[in-house]
Nucleic acid binder design. Structure first.
Lengths: 343, 343
DNA sequence: CTATAAAATGTAATCGATTTCAGAAACCGA
DNA sequence: TCGGTTTCTGAAATCGATTACATTTTATAG
């Protein structure tokens, strides 16, 4: 047996499909109470549920958001998606999820087309800006015909963006080390083709400059976000510049790699070497020593993105598709044992 | 301007909509080459893309899988979703994602209805079995009219299930501790209303029984998966039973909690106390000491679920909706420093 | 050069809703 | 009782495809 349709309800309630539709819509006052009840009764009797499919086809609205995500195996992105889903759910949207494995996806066009052919009401592009992977934005013919918001990408006058202030985050982390008394602060960055990594590095630089601390080129080593690269980074830094007494690792994974290697190299953390990470991954306090870090509320970022996008969708089809806007969240300094230096 | 439709293409190519549709379908041989090319040309000229919405409405197939997930902030579930997406993508399915926050969701009916009203081709229920949260399965009227596969739940003759063998995992972990020479092995379980937690506990019990080692009731303490509960658990166990020399913590988070507390209590790990966790979270080797654990390939679990579900969908509408079947994956023992005892 | 089968295309119904437009019913004052 | 609103309901078009069936065209055989 197939779905019960609005026609079935109409037949049972002995009214037209139009009337049933009106009862369904709810707001329309032009329905006699008696009729409404008869229809309601038929609906319940039949256990009728309208087909979102048919509805969307006609209305060109699907109450669906297209989500393009990346790196769900990692903590940050997972939280972002979770936040997106929370808010979307509250606002009555469902998610169409697509994950990208290679950040340089080239089938952007197909992807966007697929989502649009399902009448998504808006799109959230939650793929970090890496290298040229956002170059497709230059080609305006690819721009979707629905609002699209970009997460964790560089704000620009033609985009709708939500991101965490990585530059400030980098500054805060570095300043904290300075306040703790570090004199020579090394940096283990993420891959520098990541916009976020560059921003954090910039924060480190600016923080040092503002207080006139040394900032040799060699104090910087580029990791790849992995713990192993944190280990390598630390080895490089300390062998070449033994005077280094503070490390800002641009994510927690590299930080714990550094933590481990420092121990192996006989450096006490934090007495000889203060270390701070970035992300505040789950149970960061259970590393040894407990890891200081920058917390960024990715769940809130996700929620915020949906909320903003929702507003744009509501405002709707009137004029501009996407008001160029940048929503920036601030990270938070979390001080734990790994950076509690001279006291 | 609105979407270009199949009618536009038909007009430009000077054929009927039916012909365009046939060209689109591809397989139908009953198309003259000349016509096909004319249509193709029109399609490209117009940049036409068919509407999945309309297509699904007619065909009652959406090439979409409904995913109901839980706990995306955690490592395991994230990987599962990622795996699901990978395989789905390869098989040409898109995902409709819905996350549950309270495991005891009571709006199951609405949720299922929502997905079905969007004509999902199948459903993956990736919410662990906790307490009575699967009780709705008793009410067959709720059963969706499309195949549904359950992840990480107890296999039963009326369900289609994919899960990791937690019982065996528990046995393997415990046996490992035994082989390392532990004589008194304590257990920090997850919440016992979780099916997975109960299975792991059972594994512990069976492993001990099979070699005749002591297994007092007090050797068991129930945690809540959090690192903090691991700390508490360890305190309880060691103060009451100082003879304990091995701990099987039923997930890594509790294990690292135990690791930390053991250090605080002056027990050397692994010399005085061997500890093994479960999950193999990212960078588990960077805890101190590096954490032994059971690895479960949740990505593969997700992929497998999709593959199986896909087969059922393909086999399709013929007869039974869901062949009762249980696909069981085996976990893998990962030995690191935290459990390398007597040598 | 027909008769007939095979190949190619078109017509129109269909999927399941929404919505415009028009007609019927109810109400109200004169 | 009549005309004019206001309220309520229905018929039919529409969204954008697919597909059963009908029809035309082409190929093949006799």
């Amino acid at each position: 047996m197939s779905r019960t349709t609005i026609a079935d309800v109409a037949r049972v309630a002995d009214v037209s499909k139009a009337t049933v539709s009106r009862v369904l819509a709810g707001q329309s006052k032009y329905i006699r109470e008696e009729t409404r009840q008869r229809v309601q009764k038929a609906i319940e009797e039949l256990g009728y549920h309208p087909s979102d499919m048919a509805r969307s086809l006609k209305s060109k609205r699907s109450c669906t958001l297209g989500i393009v995500g990346y790196g769900l195996e990692f903590f940050g992105p997972s939280c972002t998606i979770s936040g997106i889903e929370q808010e979307a759910s509250e606002l009555g949207y469902t998610l169409l999820l697509h994950l990208i494995r290679q950040p340089e996806t080239n089938n952007v066009e197909e992807l966007l087309e697929r989502m649009q052919s399902r009448y998504v009401d808006g799109i959230i592009w939650a793929v970090p800006e890496i290298g040229e992977n956002h170059a497709w934005l230059e080609d305006k013919t690819l721009w979707p015909s629905v609002p699209i918001i970009f997460l964790s990408t560089e704000p620009r006058p033609d985009r709708f963006v939500a991101a965490v202030d990585n530059h400030n985050g980098g500054m805060m982390a570095t300043r904290h080390l300075i306040v703790q008394g570090c004199q020579n602060i090394g940096l283990i960055t993420g891959p520098l083709d990541w916009w976020e990594a560059r921003q954090r590095k910039l924060g480190w630089k600016d923080a040092l400059e503002s207080v006139g601390l040394p900032r040799k080129e060699g104090y910087v080593v580029e990791g790849n976000w992995s713990a192993l690269s944190g280990e390598h980074g630390l080895t490089q830094l300390l062998t070449r510049y033994p005077e280094i007494d503070g490390i800002f690792a641009c994510n927690d994974r590299m930080a714990v790699g550094a933590l481990k290697r420092a121990r192996q190299m006989g450096r006490r953390v934090p007495e000889d070497l203060a270390i701070i990470g970035y992300d505040d991954v789950q149970d960061a306090e259970y590393f040894y020593p407990a890891l200081s870090t920058m917390r960024q509320d990715m769940i809130e970022l996700g929620r915020l993105a949906v909320r903003k996008l929702g507003q744009v969708i509501e405002a709707g089809h009137n004029d501009v598709l996407c008001p160029p806007e940048a929503v920036i969240l601030q990270p938070e300094l979390i001080v734990r044992a790994s950076s509690l230096l001279r006291k």
